[in-house]
Nucleic acid binder design. Structure first.
Length: 280
DNA sequence: AACCAGGTCTCGA
DNA sequence: TCGAGACCTGGT
C-alpha cells in the first residue's frame, strides 16, 4: 500500500506500543489478535498478515496531516529541531482495552521489562494464533483464566490488572462510555481504576482515545521540561504548561520529545539535536 | 553492585 | 492540592 509521510521504525520503536520487534528489515507485531509483518520501502508499505489497508491506515494514524501538525507544534527551536530529526514518526491509534491494560502494567518499570510482562500475560491468558504468536487476552480471559499469573512476574501490578479485567467484564468499568467522553472527563473516569493515575490516564487518552492534547509526563519528559523549558513541579502544573505551550496537538510534541530523549539514552547511536538551555 | 524505570498509592500538611 | 515514602522486579 502507498503511504503518506511515515517512518515506520520511529513509529513502532518509540515506547508507545510494546508488541512490535524488528525482524531483519521487517517489523513483526501482534495487534489485538492479528499477527502482522510490515516492511517499509519508501512511500510503500509491504504487508503480511490478516489486515486490511483500512485497518492499517487507522492504526498508523495515516489520516493525521503530519505537516499541519508539525507547523502547529513547532513553537520553539528545540521541538522544531527534534521534529526535523525524527520526521515521519506518527502516534499510533491503539484499541482501548489493550492500550489501557498495557499501560496499567507499564508503571515504574522500563520498556524492556514491560514488553516481557505483556508477552507473558498474552502467553498465559491469550489465544494462541496460527503462527504461534499469542493474542492480547480479553478481560474475560484474564478474569476467568486458569493460568498462574505469578509466572508473568507482574509484581504488585498483578492485582491491578486482575481487578481491572473483572471490572470491565462485569460492566463496572464501561469502555464504550469512556470512548464517548471529552478529554478531562475521560481522564477522571480512567483514574477511578486502581493503578491508573495521571500519567497512565494521559497515555490512554492520547494513544487510544484520540485526545491529542493529552501530554503524559514521565520521568524523562519531566526532565526535558525542566532542562529545556525550565518548568518543574506537580504533574498538573508541568502537563498543563506543556499543553498551553504546544497547543491542541501537544501529545505529538510529547512523543517527539520522548523519542529524542530515548535515542539520547541509547548513546552511541544517531546523535540528536540538543537544546539543553532555556535560551531566553 | 548500585541505581533506575513510560508511576501509583497512601497519608499528612 | 501538593510533597514524601514505599514499592515488585529486572535492566543496565
Amino acid at each position: 500500500m502507498k503511504v503518506p509521510l511515515l517512518d515506520l521504525g520511529y513509529t513502532l520503536d518509540n515506547g508507545q506500543v510494546f508488541r512490535w520487534s524488528r525482524d531483519g528489515d521487517w517489523w513483526r507485531g501482534v495487534v489485538g489478535s492479528r499477527s502482522i509483518r510490515l516492511l517499509q520501502e519508501g512511500d510503500r508499505l509491504r504487508v503480511e498478515g490478516d489486515v486490511s489497508t483500512a485497518f492499517l491506515r487507522r492504526y498508523l494514524r495515516l489520516d493525521d496531516d503530519l505537516e499541519a501538525i508539525y507547523e502547529d507544534i513547532s513553537r520553539d527551536q528545540c521541538i522544531a529541531a527534534i521534529i526535523e530529526r525524527f520526521r515521519g514518526m506518527r502516534l499510533i491509534r491503539q484499541e482501548v482495552w489493550e492500550c489501557s491494560a498495557s499501560y496499567l502494567l507499564a508503571s515504574y518499570s522500563n520498556v524492556s521489562r514491560i514488553k516481557k510482562m505483556i508477552e507473558a500475560l498474552c502467553r498465559t491468558y491469550g489465544r494462541r494464533l496460527p503462527d504461534g504468536q499469542y493474542a492480547f487476552p480479553t478481560p474475560e480471559e484474564i478474569a476467568e483464566g486458569t493460568g498462574d499469573i505469578g509466572i508473568c512476574r507482574l509484581g504488585y501490578r498483578a492485582d491491578w490488572i486482575r481487578c481491572y479485567a473483572r471490572a470491565v467484564r462485569d460492566g463496572d468499568f464501561d469502555l464504550e462510555h469512556l470512548q464517548g467522553l471529552e478529554y478531562e472527563q475521560a481522564v477522571s473516569y480512567l483514574k477511578r481504576v486502581k493503578g491508573i493515575g495521571d500519567k497512565v490516564a494521559d497515555c490512554i487518552a492520547l494513544f487510544s482515545l484520540d485526545h491529542l492534547q493529552a501530554y503524559p509526563v514521565d520521568v524523562r519528559i519531566a526532565r526535558a521540561m525542566r532542562e529545556v523549558y525550565g518548568v518543574s513541579g506537580s504533574y498538573r502544573k508541568v502537563s498543563g504548561h506543556a499543553r498551553r505551550h504546544f497547543g491542541r496537538y501537544a501529545g505529538y510534541a510529547q512523543e517527539y520529545l520522548y523519542i529524542a530523549e530515548d535515542r539520547e539514552n541509547r548513546k552511541g547511536l544517531e546523535p540528536t539535536p540538543s537544546c539543553r538551555s532555556p535560551s531566553r
